[in-house]
Design a protein around this nucleic acid. Sequence first.
DNA 1: CGCACTCTTGAAATCAGTCAATCCTTGTGG
DNA 2: CCACAAGGATTGACTGATTTCAAGAGTGCG
Lengths: 242, 242
Amino acid sequence: MYVRCFKCPLRVQRAFTPKTEEEVAVIDRLKSDHLRIPAGSDFINPEQADAELYTVFSGWAFRFKELDDGRRQILNFALPGDLIGLQASLLDKSLYGAVALTDVELCVIPRRKLYSLFKSAPEVAYDVTWLGSQEHAIVDDNLLTAGRRNAAERICALIAALYRRAETLDMVSNGVLDFPLTQQHIADALGLSLVHTNKTIARLKAQGLFSLSDGKLSLVNPRAVGRLAQHFEKDPAPRPIL
Amino acid sequence: MYVRCFKCPLRVQRAFTPKTEEEVAVIDRLKSDHLRIPAGSDFINPEQADAELYTVFSGWAFRFKELDDGRRQILNFALPGDLIGLQASLLDKSLYGAVALTDVELCVIPRRKLYSLFKSAPEVAYDVTWLGSQEHAIVDDNLLTAGRRNAAERICALIAALYRRAETLDMVSNGVLDFPLTQQHIADALGLSLVHTNKTIARLKAQGLFSLSDGKLSLVNPRAVGRLAQHFEKDPAPRPIL
DNA sequence: CGCACTCTTGAAATCAGTCAATCCTTGTGG
DNA sequence: CCACAAGGATTGACTGATTTCAAGAGTGCG
């Protein structure tokens, strides 16, 4: 079930800027494979030298780093349309790992073709850079969260940001989002322990901020969540997609 | 005292990959100004819509984000040769501020020229992307630090990383580095309070890990610092510079 | 001299981490 | 159908790291 870019159902969504036929043709030639990765398995290893560049086609994934003794920090989550592996492709060595959170489909862009892409299709290269910066902005935000917010604020910030991003991809229906993170993932993303994460989530749910069970998230009181999170982002403008 | 790129004393240092004459000419035409910013003043405001792209020519700078109530997180420090403002240039709105830590000289690259740069000088555009990824990798690291290391580890990780980067720029002489961060900066970069930062630094100094006073840093026991920091980086390969 | 900035120090308060069980659901094998 | 294992969520009690509050000391500067 290989998906050709000119038949890609993702790129026509409202979240993405339309591309010309020629650009899509370039991207289609660029794409070397369409992978299916089962939930829980990794597709970039820390230390890996030859990691490719991926666009998430469907499902959720995340990047992480860890210390010797196993302490793990999730750096950011990737949703459909997001790029994963630009650093690893450019820097000749991955400094992080990437894991499929749900079953995931990935479009593969061979790292070897990246440099020539800058020569042959500058508009597409510009989009690559743009998407890299976008991810960078998210990590910046996550650093602010881990460094300066308390537990309740961290959880609201994470939930608000993911909910918002999912919304633009029409992944929210009737106010409910399929939310595949376990509490362990949330803890790892926020720099908290599992136990403290659990207790804080319980308190926030009891306060009626949001509901989350059986992998279904909905914001019961979006205002209050947004206030705690100090989540300022307005509706994100359409963005490029490869 | 405008510095033309073909006379740039920075780009000839061993830390940077040499460029062809044509490339330097392109960069020289790209450069629109050479700014001097006094220590402590900011050159990118959070929320600023028209931030330019800068290369640090001399001195130290940093990027930061803050919350409503003033809690501030430093995202990363920039040394000579580092790029600042790529996100802000690309994303039409800065989501962070940038401040001169010491007196700083900046090479200005107008954001307006960025897109056309991708068409006219793909090798240079590639370097821009590369440098963006490089900064991204540093922020990833800082997120791991803020999320998962304890106070002593955080301080060692920061010191080790900055010392190492400064070393490659020949800013370390006789084992001593001019280190312009106040303890408040260190605290803001690591997600710690000032008081706890102070006490932890005092303890580490007493243990003979490093010395730091009057803005002079030296690693008394580099091994121990590296071990606590779990700082794996080997000698960084030469990198591009604009 | 007085002000501003940075660094220090002590004590009290609190947030978050660790340890240790228990519960629940789901899937598997007998 | 039942026993059992595995993964995730939950809870209580305790410990400890880090923050907050408050005060003081050293230095450079107008």
